[in-house]
């Protein structure tokens, strides 16, 4: 289930290729360094291979960091798009949500709002952002007293 205009994953194929290549090259350099260092009997002759190994480990770790960074960038950009979509929508109240049988709280009256101790926003019981979380029902005043903001998706 992909939204139009977005790939199935946050990474482009090139990012995955660079990751695999970087890890293979990095690990390969470490293995070459190990084989070279094992051949020498004096520590002075092993410093070169040791440096090569450090370079290999750095390449591998840096490639992984780059991959995660690219993913975070893509997810952040997508979050902005979703937030922009929310801002552009005309404000209107949601009709009664369809009952979600997975959550007993979903059948609660409209005035009941849910959240949990670790959440920073409160939701309507049927909100998809609240699905699957350990929820506690409380009044709006109680949620706001705990410093929570209303959810931007279900607009309680």
């Amino acid at each position: 289930m992909n939204s139009p205009g977005f790939a199935a994953e946050p990474w482009r194929p090139l990012d995955v290729t660079v990751l695999i290549a970087g890890e293979v090259v990095g690990l390969g350099l470490v293995l070459v360094a190990w084989l070279q260092a094992s051949d020498k009997v004096r520590p002075a002759g092993q410093i070169g291979p040791l440096n090569l190994g450090i370079v290999g480990a750095t390449v591998a770790v840096a490639t992984g960091l780059r991959f995660v960074g690219r993913g975070r960038q893509a997810v952040a950009a997508r979050r902005s798009v979703v937030a922009g979509t929310l801002r552009l929508r005309p404000r209107r109240r949601f009709a009664r949500p369809e009952v979600d049988l997975r959550s007993p709280l979903a059948a609660a009256p409209e005035t009941v709002l849910v959240s949990s101790a670790r959440m920073t926003r409160y939701h309507r019981p049927g909100c998809p952002l609240a699905a699957g979380k350990p929820l506690v029902a409380a009044s709006r005043r109680s949620h706001e007293g705990a410093g929570r903001q209303p959810c931007g998706v279900c607009d309680p």
């Binding site: 289930m1 939204s3 977005f6 997810v75 979703v82 929310l86 998706v153």
Partner: peptide, 8 residues
């Protein structure tokens, strides 16, 4: 985010 965007 896919799910949320689908809903929106």
């Amino acid at each position: 985010l896919d799910e949320i965007q689908e809903i929106l």
